[in-house]
């Protein structure tokens, strides 16, 4: 196995992250702080506790998940789309690099970047609310699994996209609404019964619920269901990537 190639791609992508550190890290931190000021302090003070948790604390897992998912998708999609766009992807395609090695390099870097961003948001949240993490190990596992899974998804989008519009269309029109409607900022118990049932069709809901369980020990659905959901989505993404590399879809003519 050409491990050096995977490491090379990983380092190359992380170097891009370092070059854009302000845009990559500072922007999410500022935006998160605004969320806490608006939702946590201004609006949150008018909302009673949810399942015994203050509103400010309640939204922390949702916010981390929001960034973790969108940043994973954006980083991975851009990571593979940009070399396709400028043509430099020829280097990877003409090198002795297997699909697994390329995926590990690109997806590993994207997942690392979004995990760093997720942790920065978590640290930022500590400035506004105090929380004890009930199950820190589960929290770490959820962060890593979500970062990897959504980076795989972003990788697929980056390969599929043939222009900049397509690159942003799925994150904007599909993922962001699913994250917002998946209980990032509210408990589905607060919704009418019909919309509670609709929310159960949203795969992101299972991830946010499970992640929230690791913080507070309570969630709308069993934790096992959340883990099954994320692992299933990861398996689907891996299968799609395997097909892409086998057929050369939008990579090789």
């Amino acid at each position: 196995m050409n491990i050096q190639a995977a490491i090379t791609i990983y380092k190359f992508e992380m170097a891009r992250f370092r070059r854009t550190i302000f845009q990559s890290l500072v922007a999410p931190i500022i935006t998160t702080s605004l969320y806490f000021v608006v939702f946590g302090a201004a609006i949150g003070s008018k909302i009673e506790t949810i399942n015994g948790v203050s509103y400010g604390s309640f939204i922390v897992p949702g916010l981390i998940m929001l960034y973790l998912m969108t940043e994973s998708i954006n980083n991975a999609a851009f990571g593979i789309y940009f070399p396709k766009f400028v043509g430099s992807i020829f280097e990877v395609l003409s090198a002795p690099v297997s699909s697994l090695e390329a995926t590990v390099g690109y997806v590993g870097a994207a997942a690392s970047k979004s995990t760093i961003i997720g942790l920065m948001i978590f640290l930022t949240s500590n400035l506004f609310v105090n929380h004890d993490i009930k199950y820190p190990l589960v929290m770490a596992i959820f962060i890593i699994l979500t970062a990897i899974t959504f980076s795989l998804f972003g990788f697929i989008i980056g390969i599929w996209a043939q222009n900049w519009e397509k690159l942003s269309i799925i994150p904007t029109l599909l993922v962001t609404p699913l994250v917002f409607l998946g209980g990032s900022f509210y408990s589905i118990d607060m919704l009418p019964e019909f919309w509670q049932k609709v929310s159960l069709l949203n795969p992101v809901f299972y991830l946010i619920s499970g992640f929230r369980w690791s913080f507070f020990g309570t969630s709308e659905i069993p934790i096992a269901l959340s883990i099954v959901a994320i692992l299933s989505f990861m398996a689907i993404c891996l299968a799609v990537i395997a097909i892409i590399f086998k057929t050369g879809y939008r990579l090789r003519t």
């Binding site: 491990i3 190639a5 190359f12 280097e91 690099v97």
Partner: peptide, 8 residues
């Protein structure tokens, strides 16, 4: 260096 690394 990137080009070289891709070749292991």
């Amino acid at each position: 260096q990137f080009s070289r690394g891709l070749f292991g």
